[in-house]
Design a protein around this nucleic acid. Structure first.
Length: 825
DNA sequence: AGCACGCCGACT
DNA sequence: GTCGGCGTGCTC
């Protein structure tokens, strides 16, 4: 295995290293090591290499050999960045698995795995060359660049692109280079910069009691300085270094007093790197006893771990799975292992994280996409050096440099956000975590109130252990759930906008009881589409095959796929009519209509649009928690991992958009989502209420939701999957085929499908048009491979890789782009 | 990814 | 004619 093995080579050997570049390249590249760097070469360290004509990248040493490449001259590496490897052998093994399983490149994995702060790329920097010679004639663009350069000394290529407002700037830059007006250089800079703060310490001289006493006498006439000294003495008693800022906050002295003491050689001021991460001291606050049911479940999990590496914990909402996790984590900690606790992205900003942080103190680190680059590097380092024994993280935390994982918890394992769709590696973090657990010899718990069909199936087949926790912790009653028939209400003329009289009544009562309300609407934006009442025209995105959505906050029509937006139409461009209507509705519209009905209530929205920034999500949640908001209107996000004490009613505005989604998992997802939403209501002593509005009140899945009949849903769905050949009875591999010209695309996709069919027969389906047939000016078709249990999936993958290789080499189909998505759900 | 090379349309 | 646009291929 490649890894931490140094040596094995003679000192005067010429070393060649295979490196991974953080780019989507089909293979790794070989570089040559200058002899003076030989001793520093270890797999997993970063090196700086030139790749292509100018560009420098950080590459990772993958393996070392003494054999020169046969068909080309290897370039020399420029430098070795690290003193110790940043990627360990287990990580490389994990990457290799990802490459094999998800049919991606190692560079894709590297790009996803390393925090941006550890991936350096060079920038081409232009600078003036001072020659003083006669100026050669310059084009207007060249002049423009020279003028700016004269003013600000240096420019990067992207500065030039911005300045000239065009993409092709190399001709201009090269011309200036030729005319000897400028120099260019590639600059690689370490992006990660430790944060430093000033600290204060006492000079050794005053560590003698006698000297110190004299000092106090001496400062009699300088009360500010005396104050500073006294504060310092007090702060330093804790034994930790005293920050200058801390001293300023704690005493009444100004910076002048500290400087005066420093000048007198009493204080020493020094800079030291500090943590960016929240380093407040945590108390061990959370002490708890497990209920009998929890204790029994815990014992059962431990018993199952004797035989199985993976256990599915099916615990109804509010059954206290978290306490079970905590016990399991404590045990793993005692054994000296590390723990990975995976959560869906959204759940990471909530109370669970705070509670665990309180409980485990500074052994715990949190990792998700809203941390900045520097913070992520610090977490990476703390996982590598073992400071963090527990990591609470979103899907990308499977890439952290764990040394000895002993336990992996995948909470809410059914969550679709564990799947990364774009870009490659298109991986399922839950599945990847299971392999990661295998590599480390760690145990894996999958927890959910509504397990994914696959996991439940694996458990029932005996592949995973299975433990069920049916009792709600503390005897919290299940909410009352009811279905409201929209057609029925319409018949009786009892619908006001999107709200039935029943739901409005429920809201009024809940508010009267001083409870809060959550309304769930599975769509963001204000109105789904604008439609011309005269001719039926709807404005569409110019790059994608979708209707634009009106967003009230911006007052514009937006495309959810590419971000394109345009002004609202007043006049129909097709027929000139001014009768433009807004059809369909989203969270914004629900909020507005509801505000009209309840002008006194305070409302907030929780969706992707209202939570783009790092803190807004937390702010909205906090406000709701502190009851500054009465009604929270949200998309899927409200269903996930949020616990609110005060919520008495959860309303689902329209369940049909979920049920009718054209995908084989629609009903499973609907059940999970609605059950999860219901779980948000009624904590502690109160029974909550869930009201679901729908056009199809007799739908079997809705029945199953209100009867809490997970097993019934499982049985029905499993039968359908069996009948139509879907997972878990088959494995799916989806191939996305893209081209700007729809005809070229159709021809190419048909040919590719035909070639695959020649190898795999009827397992190959399509090509067909996806729901959205064009995104970002590219037309899309997809081909699906459905491999049943008897088919060797690795052979299918081999054949697929091979076929694609030949297909792309074929001149007739050049320019056609393909993507592979293994387990695309 | 990002850069060079080569082919094609629009403007001096 | 040439400049600048874009498509295609290669990078150890």
């Amino acid at each position: 295995m490649p890894g931490d093995i140094t040596g094995g080579f003679a000192a005067d050997d010429t070393l060649f290293i295979e490196v991974v570049l953080p780019l989507s390249l089909a293979r790794n590249y070989t570089y040559r090591v200058p002899a003076f760097l030989n001793e520093e070469i270890v797999a997993g360290k970063r090196v700086v290499v030139q790749f292509g004509k100018y560009k420098m990248y950080t590459a990772l040493i993958r393996s070392v050999s003494t054999r020169p490449p046969e068909h080309y001259e290897a370039k020399y590496i420029i430098d070795v960045v690290d003193a110790v490897p940043v990627v360990n052998a287990k990580q490389f093994a994990f990457w290799e698995w990802m490459v094999r399983y998800y049919l991606c490149n190692e560079g894709d994995v590297m790009a996803a795995a390393l925090p941006a702060g550890l991936k350096l790329a060079s920038e081409t920097v232009l600078s003036l060359r001072r020659t003083g010679d006669v100026q050669p004639p310059l084009s207007s663009k060249e002049q423009l660049v020279m003028e700016v350069l004269a003013r600000q000394q240096r420019m990067t290529i992207s500065d030039v692109i911005k300045l000239l407002g065009q993409k092709t700037v190399y001709p201009t830059v090269n011309a200036l280079l030729q005319k000897q007006m400028i120099d260019i250089a590639e600059e690689v800079s370490e992006k990660y910069k430790p944060l430093t703060r000033s600290f204060v310490s006492l000079d050794d001289f005053y560590k003698e009691q006698e000297n110190l006493r004299q000092l106090f006498d001496l400062l009699e006439k300088a009360p500010k300085q005396l104050d500073a000294l006294l504060s310092f003495m007090k702060l330093s008693r804790t034994g930790s270094p005293v920050a200058k800022q801390q001293l300023l906050d704690d005493s009444n002295c100004g910076p002048g007093a500290i400087k005066a003491l420093a000048d007198k050689q009493v204080f020493r001021i020094y800079k030291m790197p500090v943590d960016r991460l929240n380093d407040d001291a945590y108390d061990l606050l959370l002490h708890f006893e497990l209920s009998d049911a929890q204790q029994a479940a815990l014992d059962e999990v431990n018993a199952q771990f004797m035989e199985k590496d993976v256990v599915l914990l099916h615990g109804v909402t509010a059954s206290g799975k978290t306490q079970l996790y905590v016990r399991l984590m404590e045990k793993a900690l005692e054994n000296g292992g590390q723990i990975l606790f995976l959560l869906p992205e959204i759940a990471l900003t909530t109370q669970l994280v705070e509670r665990l942080k309180n409980y485990f103190g500074e052994k715990i680190g949190v990792y998700h996409s809203k941390f900045n680059d520097n913070e992520r590097v610090e977490i990476w380092n703390k996982v590598a050096n073992g400071t963090y024994r527990i990591v609470l993280g979103a899907r990308s935390s499977v890439f952290l440099p764990f040394r000895e994982l002993q336990l992996i918890v995948v909470d809410e394992e059914h969550e679709s956000s564990y799947k990364q769709y774009d870009p490659a590696p298109r991986y399922q973090a839950r599945d990847a975590a299971i392999y990661l657990g295998y590599l480390h010899g760690a145990k894996v718990v999958l927890g959910s109130a509504t397990p994914s069909l696959e996991s439940y199936y694996n458990a029932s087949e005996g592949k995973y252990g299975f433990v069920k926790l049916t009792e709600r912790f503390g005897g919290v009653p299940l909410p009352e759930q009811k279905i409201i028939s929209i057609p029925e209400e319409q018949k009786r003329k009892k619908m006001t906008a999107y709200f039935s009289s029943v739901l409005l009544d429920d809201i009024t009562k809940a508010i009267a009881r001083k409870e809060q309300v959550i309304l769930f609407q599975n769509r963001r934006g204000y109105a789904t589409i604008s439609i011309c009442a005269t001719c039926g025209y709807t404005p569409k995105c110019i790059h994608c095959d979708v209707s634009l959505t009106y967003h009230k906050s911006s007052g514009k029509l937006h495309c959810h796929y590419c971000g394109y937006y345009q002004n609202l139409l007043n006049i129909c461009p097709a027929c000139g009519s001014v009768h433009i209507e807004q059809k369909g509705f989203g969270t914004e519209r629900v909020e507005e209509e509801l505000q009209l009905l309840f002008p006194d209530l305070r409302m907030a929205r929780l969706d992707l649009d209202s939570t783009r920034s790092r803190n807004s999500l937390q702010q909205i949640i906090m406000d709701f928690q502190e009851r500054k908001t009465d009604i929270l209107i949200g998309t899927q996000m409200v269903a996930k991992g949020l616990d609110f004490e005060g919520v008495g009613l959860i309303g689902v505005i329209n369940a049909d958009t979920l049920l009718n989604y054209p995908e084989f998992r629609a009903l499973e997802r609907s059940y999970q989502l609605l059950a999860q939403v219901a779980g948000r209501s009624g904590r502690r002593d109160k029974q909550g209420l869930v009201s679901i509005q729908t056009y199809s009140p007799a739908h079997r899945t809705l029945r199953q939701v209100i009867e809490n009949d997970y097993e019934g849903m499982y049985a029905d769905e499993l039968a359908e999957r069996d009948q139509f050949g879907y997972p878990p009875f088959t494995r799916l591999i989806q191939i996305h085929v893209r081209h700007k010209d729809p005809h070229v695309l159709t021809r190419g996709a048909n040919e590719l499908a035909a070639r695959l069919r020649k190898l795999m027969g009827p397992r190959v389906l399509g090509p067909e048009q996806p729901l959205v047939a064009r995104i970002r000016s590219y037309f899309i078709m997809q081909i699906m491979i459905k491999a049943d249990k008897r088919t060797s999936i690795s052979k299918v993958k081999e054949a697929l890789k091979d076929t694609l290789l030949h297909f792309h080499a074929d001149k007739d189909y050049k320019g056609i782009l393909t993507q592979i998505d293994v387990d695309p759900y």
